[in-house]
């Protein structure tokens, strides 16, 4: 986990966060929320927006404090910073979008314990300048977002026959017997496994070709 010699380019950070070291299918972090919120696309979108905000800003904030924070209390400080941003999201949702807060239930609060946030603060924010830390957090969260959205789109369409609450042709009709299991937690396990399998397969195929 030693810092690289030169500061990596923004492009490099983006490729790593989105694809090469994608938090879901490479690092396999933050799986709990992946399973919990992906049964409706709308909920997933809001959850991901919250996570993007939290990871990017907390990683940058950890980075700002990195030179003064004593090593032995750094994880406490990180948790505090993460909790700070998450509570802000929760308060804002409660004040301006109460119906969405009601939909997401306890999951917003659980962003605090999302492994990706702590993972990025520890692995990057802790020893890199704030600008890079912000980008790293941003792209990792975006990497998380696109995988979650893939899962959510399939789960909502197969399970409920809708997309963002709107009926989808065929899947909402009588010809499709809705797979209720897709919107329940077991459905998330199946979908996650398939998605991870697919992306790793694509990734591996790309690596073989590059050789």
């Amino acid at each position: 986990m030693s810092p690289p010699a030169a500061r990596p380019q923004a492009r490099e950070i983006a490729v790593q966060g989105l694809w090469r070291d994608n938090p879901i299918f490479r690092q396999v972090l933050g799986i709990c929320s992946t399973l919990a919120v992906t049964n409706l696309v709308m909920n997933t979108l809001v959850m991901c927006a919250g996570l993007i905000f939290t990871v990017a800003l907390s990683s940058a904030t950890v980075s700002i404090f990195r030179t003064v924070t004593p090593r032995n209390v750094r994880m406490m400080v990180e948790t505090l910073i993460i909790a700070f941003y998450v509570i802000i999201i929760d308060v804002l949702l409660g004040a301006y979008w109460p119906s969405m807060r009601a939909n997401l239930g306890p999951y917003v609060g659980l962003i605090i314990t999302n492994c990706i946030v702590m993972g990025r603060c520890e692995a990057y924010g802790n020893n890199q300048p704030p600008g890079g830390a912000f980008l790293d957090g941003l792209f990792n969260a975006l990497g998380y977002t696109f995988v979650l959205l893939t899962i959510a789109v399939f789960r909502e369409i197969l399970g409920l026959g809708t997309f963002l609450g709107m009926p989808v042709p065929f899947f909402s009709g009588p010809g499709w017997d809705k797979w209720i299991i897709m919107v329940t937690p077991p459905g998330a396990f199946f979908m996650l496994a398939l998605v991870v399998w697919f992306f790793r397969w694509v990734q591996q195929a790309g690596e073989e070709k590059a050789k």
């Binding site: 404090f65 003064v68 924070t69 004593p70 032995n72 209390v73 406490m76 400080v77 505090l80 910073i81 700070f84 509570i87 802000i88 308060v91």
Partner: peptide, 17 residues
């Protein structure tokens, strides 16, 4: 120092929240 630091950081962030 770590205790003092932790105290100050907590107080700072908490007051904003």
């Amino acid at each position: 120092f770590p205790v003092l630091y932790m105290f100050l950081v907590t107080a700072g962030f908490s007051s904003v929240v």
